[in-house]
């Protein structure tokens, strides 16, 4: 056995140096040195056994996680989702006298709210249909844009303000993409949630290769 615990062969050569080009032909010294030849033989055996182990582990049908275990991981994540703020979809009445006469009081129709996370999910979904952009962080808040006419205020839809960070393709023209993205998001929020979008602040945080 040519290998010693010091990592150095009898001839003085470091085992790491032998290992570094184990796949190549032996160099001039190794071709004639018995220590190096023995070390090369042992290390070559280890190298091919390592390759065989990588392949067999990858193909081993028994070496798998149970689908139920994976589902449990995701289920735990979903129960612990950080849902962010709760956003009202309708404006609450300031005082009872604000209520218009032809409208039922808000207390009878009940509140309608949505989590920031649910809105973010709709926004990500809409942006995934736009090419060359990947939406990342998303913040949504309700715009408090006073003054509005008090007669229509209570029970009328709120409006959202969105902040979105993105990565975009290197070759893409950003202003045009932003317009396209704003349109897609505004349409999706109107369709699904029925509120308007006051502003969408877009921050391009990275560029990616197409």
């Amino acid at each position: 056995m040519a290998l010693t615990d010091t990592g150095r062969l009898g001839c003085g050569r470091d085992v790491d140096d032998v290992w570094a080009h184990i796949g190549d032909e032996p160099d001039e010294h190794e071709a004639t040195c018995p220590d190096c030849q023995a070390a090369r033989a042992d290390l070559a055996g280890l190298a091919s056994a390592t390759t065989a182990m990588v392949d067999s582990d990858r193909d081993d049908a028994r070496l798998v996680n149970q689908p139920s275990a994976l589902a449990a991981i995701v289920a735990i994540a979903r129960t612990e989702v950080r849902r962010g703020r709760t956003l009202p979809l309708t404006l609450p009445p300031r005082q009872p006298s604000d209520l218009p006469a032809d409208r039922p009081p808000v207390s009878e129709t009940g509140e309608l709210t949505i989590s920031e996370q649910a809105v973010a999910s709709i926004i990500r979904q809409a942006s995934d249909r736009v090419a060359d952009v990947e939406a990342r962080r998303c913040r949504v808040s309700v715009v408090d844009d006073e003054p509005r006419s008090t007669a229509t205020e209570a029970g009328s839809p709120t409006r959202f303000s969105v902040e979105l960070s993105l990565t975009v393709g290197r070759a893409v023209r950003i202003p045009g993409l932003a317009t396209q993205l704003r349109r897609a998001i505004t349409t999706a929020i109107d369709d699904r949630i029925g509120v308007g979008v006051a502003s969408i602040d877009i921050h391009v945080e990275d560029l990616h290769d197409a």
């Binding site: 994540a77 979903r78 989702v81 962080r137 998303c138 990565t167």
Partner: peptide, 11 residues
């Protein structure tokens, strides 16, 4: 992107 979304709460 998936990592940032997951950080942002996207299960």
């Amino acid at each position: 992107t998936l990592v940032v979304r997951a950080q942002d709460g996207d299960a």
